[in-house]
Simulated assay, not measured.
Amino acid sequence: MLTLQFQWAEIQRFLFILLRVSTMILLVPVFDSRNIPLMVKVGLCLSLSVFCYQFLRVQPMEPLSDLATFGVGIAQEVMIGAMIGLVVRLLFAGIQLAGEMIGFQMGLTIANVIDPVSSNQISIVSQMLYLFAILIFWAMDGHHMIFHALAESFALIPPFGMRLSEPLGRFTLDRAVAMFRMALLFGAPMIVSLVLATLVIGLIARTVPQMNVFMVALPAKIWIGLFFMGTSLSIMASVVQRHSLELQSQIGMMLKWMGRGG
Rank of each mutant, 00 (worst) to 15 (best):
A155W: 09
P158N: 01
P158C: 03
F160V: 01
G161Y: 04
L164F: 15
S165R: 01
S165P: 02
E166T: 15
P167K: 00
L168W: 06
R170N: 11
R170Q: 14
F171H: 11
F171K: 09
T172A: 15
D174N: 13
D174E: 15
D174T: 11
D174F: 08
R175N: 14
R175Y: 10
A176T: 09
A176K: 07
V177F: 11
A178E: 15
A178H: 08
M179R: 03
M179C: 02
F180D: 03
F180K: 01
R181Q: 09
A183M: 01
L184H: 10
G187C: 02
A188G: 03
P189C: 02
M190V: 15
M190P: 09
V192C: 06
V192K: 05
S193C: 14
L194P: 04
V195E: 12
T198S: 14
L199M: 12
I201S: 08
I201F: 06
G202A: 07
L203W: 11
L203S: 14
L203A: 14
I204K: 03
R206W: 10
T207N: 10
V208K: 10
Q210H: 01
Q210N: 04
V213D: 07
F214T: 13
F214V: 13
A217S: 12
A217D: 05
P219N: 05
K221D: 05
W223P: 01
W223I: 10
